[in-house]
Amino acid sequence: MFLTVFRRMKLLTHNMLTSHVKGVTNGYPLNIEAKDVRVQEVDFNPEFIARMIPKMEYEVLVQAAQSVGHLGNLPPELVTDYENNDEFLKEAHRVMMMVEVVEGSLVCPESGRKFPISNGIPNMLLNEDEV
């Protein structure tokens, strides 16, 4: 048996989410209003992080980390040759994979609509009149 570890919304997930409230033209990135943030150890897989970085909106990752107070030493701009920079990959791993939001909201940048995060799960569903 595994020792059960509870995983919650990672900043990596936040990087992929967009608000689609009716009439909103730019629902990305969502602002994070975090009530409970935790940092949880996750095995470091440098190859995975290096493959993932080009799929990320790096600036959004930096902003997200800053807004929940866990920027640490993550550089504001993506470094060149990051695939071979272990120190950078470790920082990116920490921010992408280890910082988790347990409770709070994601806020649509245009409409202000709040999407709740409870038990670490973002609820992106819209009501019928918002679609």
């Binding site: 059960t4 992929m16 967009t18 799960i121 992106m124």
Partner: peptide
């Protein structure tokens, strides 16, 4: 996923809606 020592990032969304257009 946790019970099995795996990480699955779960989202409440209609189909893939919330992950578009990013993904």
């Amino acid at each position: 996923s946790n019970q099995n020592g795996m990480t699955v990032n779960t989202i409440v969304s209609d189909l893939v809606n919330a992950l578009q257009p990013r993904l």
